[in-house]
Design a protein around this nucleic acid. Structure first.
Length: 606
RNA sequence: GGGGCGGUAGCUCAAUUGGUUAGAGUCCCGGACUGUCGAUCCGGUGGUUGCGGGUUCGAGUCCCGUCCGCCUCGCCA
């Protein structure tokens, strides 16, 4: 074959006169008859125009060129010259062209399912793109994402290498551990009836690496959680997993903040300001969510104390319920932007989060209330306006429900209003740390505590002794309150309202770890059975340690400005866990199952 | 498991109130054309309207079921 001397994106005026060879795919051809044919040749680097002209070349060459079609793979040799016609300002190589003297069709294409063009209006549906992923990935946009993902992984390794981290691999075939997400299971051939689980994260292994004296660990690692996917979530995803020894929380946060700053400097060319820190409680109060988007206002205000004074039954009845609250969002100038139809829609929409609905009113020109629930809140109008710092023309949106659904609904509504009213500024990067999470949450239904982060998260130093003194079995309201008020040394890194990383200082004392297990309802026997290796490791001299895991896919999404996680994964899966290209999952031979000592209980059609 | 949206030539879409032989652009095939810029012009191939039932004189259109894709609630320590 004619081997390339250059790629399709690099030739410029300075190369004029050189004889070059290019290899690539035919992006487009313009056939002006037997005498003149243009071909745009494409590779990962760009587009270059080839010209076949009888004034420069043989009739046989033109006959070959006449057969060239979109997506054929072609090698062409010729001289670089300035274009005869006008230059094409849309192409980096637009001032030159290759006068082809020798050409080979290296591979003829079948009729393509679609052409890999970044056309706005003519993009194939996602199902088709995934089915023919090799075609889809040829699109310049997808090539750009693949390259950016590589760049991000490279910056990650470079930064942490400079900081003394070692990249160490951990097993993909692990034992299943309780709690957390559903595991993907792998049957053991050598040990009939036994199962491996694919890792949800290398959490325990990286902690044991700290006990092993590795000091600083890094891994860019695939993780698996068998839960339903979302637009920003796949069952199979990639973490940048990190752990450090002999550190406190601030040392970890500083190191990780430095990483994000480096990444954004290299990829975006921006200098991120220091990341503010916000407690979990403050995040929930002001933003109704543990990953606040601070790029816009619309903050949530608890107006329960004011609402209590009204005669409005929706408010007063909600406040009589356990943990009942009334919360309010002020939409500046909302009177002109939020129609009755829209706010009715919000009222319906928040029901999916367990709220009863949304009450609406507007601030009149005189500073009173008009429309919606105005007549019910007349008596408290002045106080509400003061509390919300409201101005004429503002709309007030209220939810009155028990604390959890009310907070959640307002948190989601805040984001929806911001999107609907185009209040989210472009080009802003608002990073922050959320800290001081509660360690445990009590679930009344199952009558037990759950770890908000995971069972290896340490309490903040000032809560250690309190934790140790508590009676894990006492589920009286007073004790539940005490346990729920324990704060952990966990932290989440949040970027523009999305959690890009989360971690904690870990428990390095065996007695503290045992106490946490018993609070989670694991007996010493159960804990030993499930985590004996960790407990044992911790007993042989564990350094204080902590770490974090970043969602690589999420970071790439931000830096590529897409809200579809499948765009940043070369071969992603659909909502039903299928790979539409390779047709996984699929049936296997009975023989394979037999070897694995496994039989399917599925009786439906296949 | 629940809710919502969608599925019509290879691809992107149209098809009035249920009414003629389901159209257009693009791709592909053939032809014309020597300076194009995801050329232009002429002609052509291409359809089990996701699948299975039902209602009807008549179904792409209405009803039921099912499959697939997307969004979402639950779930995601």
């Amino acid at each position: 074959m004619l081997k390339r001397t250059h790629n399709c994106g690099e030739l410029r005026e300075q190369h004029v006169g050189q004889t070059v060879t290019l290899n690539g795919w035919v992006n487009a051809y313009r056939d002006h008859g037997e005498g003149l044919i243009f071909v745009d040749l494409r590779d990962r680097y760009g587009l270059t125009q080839l010209v076949f002209d009888t004034r420069d070349a043989s009739r046989a060459l033109l006959e070959l060129a006449d057969k060239i079609r979109n997506e054929d793979v072609v090698a062409a040799r010729g001289v670089v010259r300035l274009r005869d016609g006008a230059p094409n300002p849309k192409l980096a190589t637009g001032k030159i062209e290759i006068v082809v003297s020798e050409c080979q069709i290296l591979s003829k294409t079948a009729k393509p399912p679609f052409l890999p063009w970044d056309d706005k209006g003519q993009m194939p549906g996602e199902e088709i793109r995934l089915r023919h992923r090799y075609m889809d990935l040829r699109r310049p946009r997808m090539q750009e994402i693949l390259a950016k993902r590589h760049r991000i992984a490279k910056v990650t390794r470079d930064y942490f290498d400079e900081m003394g981290f070692l990249e160490i691999e951990t097993p993909m075939l692990c034992r299943s551990t309780p709690e957390g997400a559903r595991d993907f299971l792998v049957p053991s051939r050598l040990q009939p009836g036994m199962w491996y689980a694919l890792p949800q994260s290398p959490q325990l292994f990286k902690q044991i690496l700290m006990v092993s004296g590795c000091d600083r660990y890094l891994q860019i690692v695939r993780c698996f959680r068998d839960e339903d996917p979302r637009a920003d979530r796949q069952a199979e995803f990639t973490q940048i997993d990190l752990e450090m020894s002999f550190v406190d929380r601030d040392m970890v946060l500083d190191t990780m903040e430095g990483f994000a700053r480096r990444l954004w400097k290299v990829v975006e060319g921006v200098d991120l300001p220091p990341f503010p820190r916000m407690t979990y409680r403050e995040a929930m109060e002001r933003y109704g969510i543990d990953r606040p988007d601070t790029r816009y206002g619309l903050e949530i205000v608890d107006v329960s104390s004011v609402a209590r004074k009204s005669d409005f039954k929706v408010f007063t009845e909600a406040l009589e319920k356990p943990r009942g609250v009334v919360k309010c969002i002020r939409v500046p100038g909302g009177a002109d932007k939020l129609s009755r139809k829209i706010t009715d829609g919000y009222s319906e929409w928040v029901r999916q989060y367990g709220a009863g609905g949304i009450a609406v009113t507007k601030v009149s020109a005189t500073g009173g209330m008009e429309s919606g629930i105005a007549k019910f809140v007349e008596s408290i109008a002045g106080e509400l306006v003061a509390r919300m710092d409201a101005r004429p023309g503002d709309t007030l949106l209220f939810a009155a429900d028990p604390y959890t659904p009310c907070t959640k609904a307002m948190g989601e509504l805040r984001q929806k209003v911001a999107r609907d009213l185009n209040m989210i500024p472009e080009g802003k990067w608002n990073f922050l740390w959320v800290i001081d999470f509660p360690m445990f949450e009590f679930d009344a239904k199952t009558e037990r505590f759950y770890a908000l982060h995971h069972p290896f998260t340490a309490p903040t130093p000032e809560y250690v002794e309190q934790l140790m003194a508590l009676d894990p079995k006492d589920h009286s309201p007073a004790n539940v309150d005490r346990i729920e008020s324990l704060l952990s040394a966990g932290y989440d890194m949040v970027c523009n309202g999305s959690e890009v990383g989360g971690g904690s200082i870990r428990i390095h004392r065996q007695d503290v770890q045992s106490q946490v297990f018993s609070l989670l309802g694991l007996s010493p026997e159960q804990a030993k059975q499930k985590f004996s290796f960790l407990l044992e490791a911790l007993s042989y001299g564990a350094p204080p340690h902590g770490g974090i895991a970043f969602g690589l896919d999420r970071l790439v999404m931000h830096l590529c400005r897409t809200d579809n996680i499948r765009d940043v994964i070369a071969f992603p899966k659909t909502q039903t866990g299928a790979d539409l290209m390779s047709q996984a999952p699929n049936l296997v031979d009975d023989e394979q199952l037999k070897e694995l000592h496994v039989a399917s209980t599925w009786t439906g059609d296949r």
